[in-house]
Simulated scan of single mutants.
Amino acid sequence: MQTTALGRTGITVSRLCLGTMTFGEQNSEAEAHAQLDYAVGRGINFIDTAEMYPVPPRQHTQGLTEAYIGSWLKARGRRDRVVIATKVAGRSTELAYARPFAIHPDRRNIEAAVDASLRRLQTDYIDLYQVHWPDRSTNFFGRLGYQHQPYPDEVPIEATLAALADLVRAGKVRAVGISNETPWGAMRYLALAEQRGLPRVASIQNPYSLLNRVFEIGLAEIALREDLGLLAYSPLGMGALTGKYRHGARPPEGRLTRFDRFKRYSTPAGEAAVETYAQIAEQHGLNLPQMALAFLLRQPFLTSAIVGATTPDQLRTNLDAADLTLPDAVVAAIEAVHAAQPNPCP
Rank of each mutant, 00 (worst) to 15 (best):
T3I: 11
T9G: 04
L16E: 09
T22Q: 13
E29H: 09
A34Q: 13
L36F: 01
V40A: 08
E51C: 07
Y53N: 07
H60W: 12
G77M: 08
R78T: 10
R81V: 15
A85W: 00
R91V: 13
T93A: 13
P100N: 10
P100Q: 09
A102G: 01
I103P: 04
H104P: 00
R107L: 10
S117V: 00
L118M: 04
Q122I: 04
I126V: 15
D127M: 10
L128E: 04
Q130V: 09
R136K: 15
S137R: 15
R143W: 02
E154K: 04
I157Q: 01
A163I: 06
D166N: 11
R169I: 12
R169M: 03
A175G: 05
V176M: 09
V176C: 07
N180F: 07
E181A: 06
G185N: 09
G185H: 11
M187Y: 01
Y189M: 12
L190E: 03
L192Y: 07
L192E: 07
N206P: 06
Y208K: 04
Y208C: 02
L210W: 03
L211E: 06
I217F: 13
L219P: 03
E221M: 04
I222P: 01
L224Y: 01
E226H: 15
D227G: 02
L231G: 12
S234A: 15
G239F: 08
Y245H: 14
G248Y: 01
R255K: 08
L256M: 12
F259G: 03
T267A: 11
A269Y: 00
T276A: 14
Y277V: 03
L286E: 10
L296P: 00
L297I: 01
R298S: 13
Q299M: 12
P312D: 05
D313T: 14
Q314I: 00
L315K: 07
R316W: 01
N318E: 05
D320E: 15
A322P: 02
L324A: 07
A333I: 10
A333V: 11
H338S: 05
A339P: 01
P346K: 09
